[in-house]
Design a protein around this nucleic acid. Structure first.
Lengths: 200, 200
DNA sequence: CGCGACGTTGATTTGCCTCAACGATTGTGG
DNA sequence: CCACAATCGTTGAGGCAAATCAACGTCGCG
């Protein structure tokens, strides 16, 4: 029963790389389980991102702040995703991003020292980490592509297609910020689409 | 003298990871030196990116094509950079990007099979590759940030600051495409800035 | 030389923002 | 558990950044 507690994160690793029982124990030793309230900040820009968070349950947003103090959502992380500022975590530089829960969350965190130790103890985790980087890069490149080649409405449709479940969990202002438009304009698009649906 | 031929790419690796003479030989065995004319395509979207290119001399652009057949420059690669579609290369999936020289180029290429072999023979190259991924991710995330939080002119200034040498080497229409604006609007901004300078 | 690609300039249009006012919903302290 | 505040989403008016279209000079190249 106790063994079951870490199931999700271990299964997450096992989906990418094989692990022995001993290695699984090494991982379990180093992870910490956290329950977090809504609107809890896990990282603020200028701090160093000293832990990574695997989400068992809940939703987290990663965002920047521009010169005019406007927030800009970079991505949302939900169940079975990771939330972190990769650059800050790896290079121990001040973070560019803020990380905040937008739902009640249950997460596992791994601190940087323990993470480094894990990579030494279980070299095959390098592969898992490379996959993490790859996936992050791919979605980042896709976003650049979409942002420069699609209009706001097309981007919204893509978002709905790709993350159909997220729309109901995330407030419109956060979705608007993710899409790079104002909340008012998103609202406009939605009503326009509703009217269209009714006609058809 | 012949030994000198591969200097740049080997030095590039040595800047990130230590290598023995034997390992350097293993690398040299697998790389191929190419001279390319201007406007040579190294990769077209839908193909699989089967080689990566290290640039000794010249300039290459990586771009996408949107639904309306408009090109969108994702990034420029010059001396000591790599040109590739990472996702396609790693996962052997159809490329999202086109790769084209915009100057006469001298590059070293490594094919995917030889690349995989190298990573096996020289495990420490995994670290180099992870650094490549990291750097690509960081600049990709920065671009998203800039694109959503800065106006066209601010992005242009950032570009000039970050790549002061590129402006003279790359045509305005390509820079405009990279910045995500029309060539006409870039032209407008430039004359505006020139006038401003004259007044000061 | 002549053609085609490039850069400039101006007129017009458009996608999206900002501001403001108003209901709806959520959160909170009494 | 209610009352009130705060936040959120909607709607509309007006404005601006940047796109589009078109016309023209210029440069490089076959």
């Amino acid at each position: 029963m106790i063994k079951k507690m870490n199931e999700e994160i271990i299964e997450h690793f096992l989906r990418v790389v094989p692990l022995t029982d001993k290695e699984i124990r090494l991982i379990k030793e180093k992870i910490e389980f956290l329950k977090l309230n809504k609107k809890t900040h896990l990282l603020a820009a200028e701090e160093v991102c000293s832990s990574i968070y695997y989400i068992k349950r809940g939703c987290i947003r990663v965002y920047t702040m521009d010169d005019h103090c406007l927030e800009n959502n970079i991505f949302f992380a939900i169940e079975d995703w990771w939330a972190l500022d990769l650059m800050s975590f790896i290079e121990k530089t001040p973070a560019r991003f803020y990380i905040e829960t937008i739902e009640e969350c249950e997460v596992w965190s791994i601190s940087k020292p323990k993470f480094d130790l894990l990579l030494e103890e279980i070299p095959i985790l390098e592969k898992w980490f490379r996959m993490l980087l790859q996936n992050a890069l791919i979605s980042s490149e896709n976003r650049i592509h979409y942002k420069s080649s699609l209009k706001a409405e097309e981007r919204y449709i893509k978002f709905l297609e790709k993350y159909p479940k997220l729309e109901r969990r995330i407030s419109q202002k956060h979705i608007a910020s993710y899409l790079g438009i104002s909340p008012e304009f998103l609202s406009l698009m939605k009503t326009k689409r509703l009217r269209k649906e009714k006609i058809e």
